Simulated scan of single mutants.
Amino acid sequence: MSGELPIPVFGHLVRMTDHRATFEHAALDEPRTEHGYCTDDMARVLVVTSRQPESSGDINRLAGIALRFLGDAQALTGACRNRMNAAGKWTDEPSLDDCWGRCLWGLGTAVAHSDVVWVRKSALVQFERAAQVRSPSPRAMAYAALGAAEVLTAHPDHRAARKMITDYAVSVPQPNGDPSWPWPEPRLTYANAVLPEAIIAAGVALEAPSLWQRGVDLLGWLLDLETSDDHLSPTPAGGRGPGDTGPAFDQQPIEVSCLADACARAAVVDPAARWNDGVRAAASWFTGANDTGQVMWDPETGGGFDGLQADGVNRNQGTESTLAVISTLQHAQRISLLQR
């Protein structure tokens, strides 16, 4: 993991985006317009565009498109639709699924980090609407808690954000006492690292060191489990349970980017070198330090490849995978700048 890591490239993301939103899927590097758009992706677009330093006109335009999309996705109750077709028609009903939590995450990140005043103000209004409700889904609530934590960095007395993160903290399960499988679920599934990341974020926001330490400990276990020799070997799309051995495929870029997000957050509260090393390992996964030595992105355009297989790479460059590359390289770039 030595050597200079690349910087984020937004070209493919811009090319995947029209006046409505960013298309969800691609056939190689061509947008598959027939599959339309989704809130999950547009929340992630708002995250990466809001935290990109010295953002350009194209990046700010993407942020504006994402913010408008998320506003349209919200019902007055705060619930969110997830899927819009290429004609601009919503195809599902508002829910409190992951799209709701990711919407709050994207909006909170914009409130805390956007360079554009109207984006910050509009995002806060939308955040307050979505924060009226709660989800029964642990991952949706984890994403919502991350958004609330971001809002509190900019507005420490924000009541709705504080109530959201307090409610989340109360819902976090107690440690199960099993050192071999401390995970709060019987299997690892998807976006796993968001769970310990949200616990860390809640502990920091509520000034509860014992809570954030639980998140750090859980993340450390996950990072150890998903590290093989000197590279990451993330949980595949089919999940991973006690006793499962790796490597296993189909590995998804979102698992790598979630781990980078969580390690970057852990590094703020814990000086251990392993967290910055975890971010670098995540970035290096995309550049070839993985179970099969395959490059998982196009460094010219920034497009991310959709999956690592035992016998090769799924070279379709969907939006989720592209955003995973951008997000991970943003963290790696920030660490590099801090250590110069």
Rank of each mutant, 00 (worst) to 15 (best):
residue 151 V to M: 00
residue 153 T to S: 14
residue 153 T to Y: 02
residue 153 T to D: 03
residue 154 A to D: 05
residue 154 A to W: 05
residue 155 H to R: 15
residue 156 P to K: 02
residue 156 P to E: 02
residue 156 P to F: 04
residue 156 P to A: 01
residue 157 D to A: 15
residue 158 H to E: 12
residue 158 H to R: 04
residue 160 A to F: 05
residue 161 A to T: 07
residue 161 A to P: 06
residue 161 A to F: 02
residue 162 R to S: 11
residue 163 K to G: 01
residue 163 K to C: 04
residue 163 K to N: 08
residue 164 M to W: 00
residue 164 M to P: 00
residue 164 M to E: 14
residue 165 I to Y: 05
residue 165 I to K: 01
residue 165 I to Q: 05
residue 166 T to G: 12
residue 168 Y to G: 09
residue 168 Y to N: 01
residue 168 Y to K: 07
residue 168 Y to W: 11
residue 170 V to Y: 08
residue 170 V to G: 02
residue 170 V to F: 12
residue 171 S to I: 07
residue 171 S to D: 07
residue 172 V to P: 12
residue 172 V to C: 04
residue 173 P to W: 07
residue 173 P to H: 03
residue 174 Q to G: 10
residue 174 Q to R: 12
residue 176 N to H: 03
residue 177 G to P: 13
residue 177 G to T: 10
residue 179 P to Q: 08
residue 179 P to S: 13
residue 179 P to H: 01
residue 179 P to E: 11
residue 181 W to H: 11
residue 181 W to K: 10
residue 182 P to K: 03
residue 182 P to L: 01
residue 182 P to V: 02
residue 184 P to V: 01
residue 186 P to H: 08
residue 186 P to I: 05
residue 186 P to S: 10
residue 187 R to Q: 15
residue 187 R to M: 09
residue 188 L to F: 15
residue 188 L to T: 07
residue 188 L to R: 13
residue 189 T to L: 12
residue 190 Y to K: 07
residue 190 Y to A: 08
residue 190 Y to N: 08
residue 190 Y to E: 08
residue 191 A to S: 11
residue 192 N to P: 11
residue 193 A to N: 14
residue 193 A to H: 10
residue 193 A to E: 09
residue 194 V to E: 02
residue 194 V to L: 00
residue 195 L to M: 12
residue 196 P to Q: 03
residue 196 P to M: 00
residue 196 P to V: 03
residue 196 P to R: 02
residue 196 P to T: 04
residue 198 A to G: 08
residue 198 A to S: 15
residue 198 A to C: 01
residue 198 A to L: 06
residue 199 I to T: 15
residue 199 I to Q: 12
residue 199 I to G: 04
residue 199 I to W: 03
residue 199 I to L: 11
residue 200 I to W: 00
residue 200 I to L: 01
residue 201 A to G: 06
residue 201 A to S: 14
residue 201 A to H: 03
residue 202 A to P: 10
residue 202 A to H: 03
residue 203 G to N: 02
residue 204 V to P: 00
residue 204 V to T: 11
residue 205 A to G: 03
residue 205 A to R: 01
residue 205 A to I: 03
residue 205 A to S: 14
residue 205 A to K: 02
residue 206 L to H: 04
residue 206 L to A: 05
residue 206 L to P: 10
residue 207 E to R: 15
residue 207 E to I: 07
residue 207 E to S: 14
residue 208 A to R: 10
residue 208 A to Y: 01
residue 210 S to D: 15
residue 211 L to T: 10
residue 211 L to K: 09
residue 211 L to N: 05
residue 212 W to Y: 14
residue 213 Q to I: 05
residue 213 Q to Y: 01
residue 214 R to I: 01
residue 214 R to Q: 14
residue 214 R to K: 08
residue 215 G to L: 00
residue 215 G to R: 04
residue 215 G to H: 04
residue 216 V to Y: 04
residue 216 V to N: 07
residue 216 V to F: 00
residue 216 V to Q: 04
residue 217 D to Y: 02
residue 217 D to Q: 15
residue 218 L to D: 06
residue 218 L to K: 07
residue 218 L to Y: 10
residue 219 L to G: 10
residue 220 G to N: 12
residue 221 W to Y: 09
residue 221 W to K: 04
residue 222 L to T: 01
residue 223 L to F: 14
residue 224 D to L: 08
residue 224 D to F: 07
residue 225 L to H: 11
residue 225 L to I: 06
residue 225 L to R: 15
residue 226 E to C: 15
residue 226 E to N: 05
residue 227 T to R: 09
residue 227 T to S: 09
residue 227 T to G: 12
residue 228 S to I: 08
residue 228 S to C: 06
residue 229 D to P: 06
residue 229 D to S: 13
residue 229 D to I: 03
residue 229 D to W: 09
